[in-house]
Design a binder for these strands. Structure first.
Length: 104
DNA sequence: AACATGACCTTTG
DNA sequence: CCAAAGGCCATGT
């Protein structure tokens, strides 16, 4: 099951994201050792089990914004959670120059 | 064919 | 000059 292999690595990297910081899909993919697999990361989060303690809310796209439509409950949920960790929002976007987690 | 994206390029502040 | 924002095409599942 090669698919499960990189999915597991994505989970590991995402779990290493410190509180108050965020990472991009591509960044997670690259840190996991699978460049150009940003969308696979999104797919990974999409198939997350309900009982997982994975901080998926700290993963955003390269634009610094949440990959969900603004009117979506998922968007508000993720944003609320990020702000709760001390991450600020600017025009519905996050200043990556301030919160982006470059790695360990 | 569709997707929880990224990079490159150009314009604005 | 650097940072941010929007548009178009490329990548891999």
């Amino acid at each position: 099951m090669e698919q499960q292999d990189y999915l597991a690595k994505f989970w590991l990297v995402i779990g290493h994201i410190p509180e108050g910081k965020v990472a991009t899909y591509g960044g997670v993919a690259e840190m996991a050792g699978y460049p150009r697999m940003a969308r696979a990361v999104g797919r990974c989060l999409k198939t997350l089990p309900e009982g997982s303690n994975l901080p998926w809310h700290r993963v955003i796209n390269a634009k610094g914004m949440i990959s969900f439509p603004e009117g979506s409950p998922q968007y508000q949920c993720q944003r609320q959670r990020l702000e709760d960790e001390g991450i600020i929002f600017r025009n519905n976007k996050v200043p990556l120059t301030q919160h982006l987690w470059l790695g360990d």
